[in-house]
Design a protein around this nucleic acid. Structure first.
Lengths: 125, 125
DNA sequence: TAATTAATGTAACAATGTTGCAAAAGTAAT
DNA sequence: ATTACTTTTGCAACATTGTTACATTAATTA
């Protein structure tokens, strides 16, 4: 059977993302790790953490892909929360408590939601 | 002064996007044009159409960048509408009538909204 | 029709992401 | 601790998407 292994790369990357208050991009992670492992390894570890449900992936409004830890998914793994993207410092934050409402268009079957607000975060305001 | 010129590339690309019921990606546009112009020209024409406010840019939840015509922006150019992304046929549609509501988090200044619902579109349902 | 300059094609480059394969490193059993 | 097994890694190569510089082409105006 296939058993997952705990490697330095995985441990470090996971700790980095989970302890961060904002979502991190691949290149930001790479910079933080300072050559601990290869570029490709980071991609593969991220993929693994996604599958394991430890982190989730966010495509920002500018197309930059970021990763954030799953803080409130311990019981049910869902990501129907708003993300806030700061136009000044480029940070992406999960606003886990904000649940938007909308009138469901007919004949559409919704299975996922992706809601990002852009503007200025509290730090940049 | 700088005067815009009507070229074949611009005319064709604009017609393609405006007449399409779904948002189109760069590669989809390139396929449709069948070598009418270079890859780079398409990027430049798209940039021009964006600046002129004829089309708008959508970054889909999967990170694919798409372009759609501005149908209801004749008076005021705003794009605070929902987009629907079909997980089966990969189409992205503007649901211009749907306006979501949400409780604004304090200390955040919102200037833009990006809301995409994923699932199955009427054609794929 | 000629002059002006916007727009294009080409080539080169950068960033991001994926894949195949051999080497390295966890894990479990001896 | 050593061995055997197989996951994970590093490397190289490649694909896609997007940008930039520069010479050429072509749209507009006089």
């Amino acid at each position: 059977m296939k058993t997952a292994r705990n490697t330095t790369a995985k441990t470090e990357i996971q700790a980095l993302i989970v302890s961060s208050s904002v979502a991190l991009s691949h290149s930001e992670i790479q910079k933080s790790l300072e050559g601990l492992c290869d570029r490709v390894t980071i991609y593969r570890v991220l993929e693994r953490l996604l599958v394991e449900g430890i982190i989730h992936k966010i495509v920002n409004v500018d197309g930059v892909v970021k990763y954030a830890g799953c803080h409130s998914c311990s019981v049910k793994h869902s990501h129907n929360h708003i993300h806030f993207s700061c136009q000044k410092c480029k940070s992406v934050t999960c606003l886990e408590d904000v649940q938007p409402s909308y009138k469901l268009p007919k004949n559409y079957k919704v299975s996922e939601m992706n809601f990002t607000l852009s503007g200025l975060c509290p730090q940049c305001l």
